[in-house]
Design a protein around this nucleic acid. Structure first.
Length: 276
DNA sequence: ATGACTAGCACGGCTAGA
């Protein structure tokens, strides 16, 4: 199974590019962020023509997440409050459509669009920290269910210096501040690992390049789109790749797709009692 | 220090992104 994540910065504006990429790569699952469209206007037909069903949580103009899958999806959950119905913050944070999950082939795919935060002095910054604190509670509730977890999305956080093109200038600022990093690490706990770093220790690998200041031409990017796996899925991982070339398209999203390759479901051992 | 680009909304110039 291949699970992909891509912040498309408007699914309608990027529909042709997403369709071309899906037709070429055909991952089993593609998680989208920043769809920027109300649910009634989501372009289901274009994806169905390629063999994908979509489950969505969108809103007009801002935010919005979707899971596209070639495999059946079950037990779809929208928002933090789906698992935290008595948590006031979870209910309030649900106003912005940033969280959706589905059970696919025996694992839980959780697709997130973490708030950007804008700047350390913006009121959006404490919102981001509160959102991450809620994510931690949400993940604790999810873990209690015992379903293997793949958590993907646009995290709007570079966890380490090697994830930023110019850490000397950018570290400590938005997307690279200690409180953001601590909040995300607390949510990950000991359970979830960034699968990209299992296969690639070096810096110089980015998933987002600013539209401005020639960031793409100078290859000045950040790695803020991540795929986190629980131990059971991590043991099945065979690779994780950033599809950088997509950022070089005409009228691209500012993010590139990231794809994790999993040998899932695991093949049963020789002589196991499959036919009982 | 600031702004650069892009998209949405709605048709002028904002908000928001990261």
């Amino acid at each position: 199974m291949r699970i992909a994540t891509w912040n498309v910065n408007s699914v309608r504006t990027r529909l042709d590019q997403v369709s071309v990429w899906l037709a070429a790569e055909a991952p089993e699952v593609l998680c989208l962020q920043e769809t920027k469209v109300a649910d009634a206007l989501f372009p289901h037909a274009a994806f169905e023509a390629l063999g994908y069903r979509a489950v969505i949580s969108g809103q007009k103009a801002y935010n919005g997440v979707a899971i596209l899958s070639r495999l059946p999806m079950a037990d779809v959950r929208v928002g933090f409050d789906a698992l935290l119905p008595d948590d006031p913050a979870a209910v309030e944070l649900g106003e912005q459509k940033r969280v959706i999950s589905a059970s696919i082939d025996g694992l839980r795919v959780l697709n997130l669009y973490v708030p950007n935060g804008s700047s350390l002095t913006s009121e959006k910054y404490p919102y981001k920290l509160a959102w991450l604190a809620c994510l931690q509670r949400y993940l604790q509730a999810q873990e209690a269910e015992g379903e293997p977890l793949a958590m993907v999305g646009d995290f709007n956080i570079a966890l380490e210096s090697r994830d930023i093109h110019d850490p000397g200038r950018l570290e400590g600022g938005i997307m690279a501040s200690d409180p953001e990093r601590r909040a995300l690490r607390a949510a990950l706990g000991e359970r979830l690992r960034d699968v990209f770093r299992v296969f690639e220790p070096d810096s110089g690998h980015w998933s987002w390049w600013d539209y401005r200041t020639g960031a793409w031409d100078m290859d000045r990017g950040w790695r803020i789109d991540h795929i986190y796996l629980c131990d059971q899925l991590l043991a099945c991982a065979t690779g994780c790749v950033i599809h950088k070339a997509v950022r070089g398209n005409d009228q691209p999203s500012d993010h590139a797709p990231v794809v994790a390759h999993l040998a899932w479901p695991p093949e049963s051992a020789e002589g196991e009692d499959d036919d009982w």
